[in-house]
Amino acid sequence: MRNKIGRIIYCIGIVCIILSLSLCSYNVYDSLRSYYVSKHMMSEYHTLKTSSGEIPDYVLNPDMEMPEQKVDGIPCVGILEIPSLNLKLCVTSTFSYEYMKKLPCRYYGSIYKNNMVIAAHNSWFHFGRLNTLHNGDKIIFTDVNGNSFEYGVDAIEALKPNSVEAVTNGKWPLTLYTCTLDAQYRVVVRCK
């Protein structure tokens, strides 16, 4: 009887190891897939126009909608760069879980109104390393018209998943966020 229980526990252990390896393999595959999609999207993205010394439209009308460019059918509002993490990613104009599998998404607000929130998955090639940023690290957002907005990391917080209002109602002009690996908290990077 004791030997039979030992074999059952052994088999359960083997099944658990196989399931763990499968889950780990899928996560690595998903992360690499998002990396290649991001790289492809960046190669297809082109700035619509560059500043020619005149006053940009968003200065004259900060309430204007952010212009979009479709890249492979996905509407994008600009490029997010985080030099210290070696990241340069297209940002979609709206949030959806389908878009977020591929790119960071504008979750809330506008760069012109100084209240934009960008969300992305916690993968190595997206926002998985946000928690390693330091105060003062540079963050750059460039809209589709070529207007560039430069920020520095001001604060890094860990919030509960239901703290949506705390993420969107901040005094910071740009906020980046993702979930922790265990999905118990959200890593929130405030930039000004």
Results as ranks from 00 to 15, higher is better:
residue 5 I to F: 12
residue 9 I to R: 07
residue 10 Y to P: 00
residue 18 I to D: 09
residue 22 S to T: 15
residue 24 C to M: 03
residue 30 D to H: 13
residue 34 S to A: 12
residue 36 Y to A: 00
residue 40 H to M: 04
residue 41 M to P: 14
residue 46 H to P: 01
residue 48 L to S: 13
residue 48 L to I: 15
residue 50 T to K: 12
residue 52 S to I: 05
residue 53 G to Q: 04
residue 54 E to M: 03
residue 54 E to Y: 03
residue 57 D to P: 01
residue 59 V to C: 13
residue 59 V to Q: 14
residue 60 L to M: 12
residue 65 E to F: 11
residue 70 K to R: 12
residue 70 K to E: 15
residue 72 D to S: 13
residue 72 D to N: 13
residue 72 D to P: 00
residue 73 G to F: 08
residue 75 P to G: 09
residue 77 V to H: 10
residue 83 P to V: 15
residue 86 N to Y: 08
residue 88 K to D: 03
residue 98 E to Q: 14
residue 103 L to F: 06
residue 103 L to P: 14
residue 106 R to C: 15
residue 107 Y to E: 02
residue 108 Y to A: 02
residue 112 Y to V: 07
residue 116 M to A: 10
residue 117 V to L: 05
residue 128 G to I: 13
residue 131 N to D: 10
residue 133 L to F: 00
residue 137 D to P: 09
residue 137 D to I: 04
residue 139 I to R: 05
residue 145 N to Y: 07
residue 145 N to G: 00
residue 150 E to N: 12
residue 155 A to F: 10
residue 156 I to H: 04
residue 157 E to M: 04
residue 157 E to T: 10
residue 160 K to I: 03
residue 171 K to R: 04
residue 172 W to R: 07
residue 176 L to N: 06
residue 176 L to T: 06
residue 180 T to F: 11
residue 181 L to E: 14
residue 187 V to T: 13
residue 187 V to G: 00
residue 187 V to S: 00
residue 188 V to W: 02
residue 188 V to M: 04
residue 190 R to S: 13
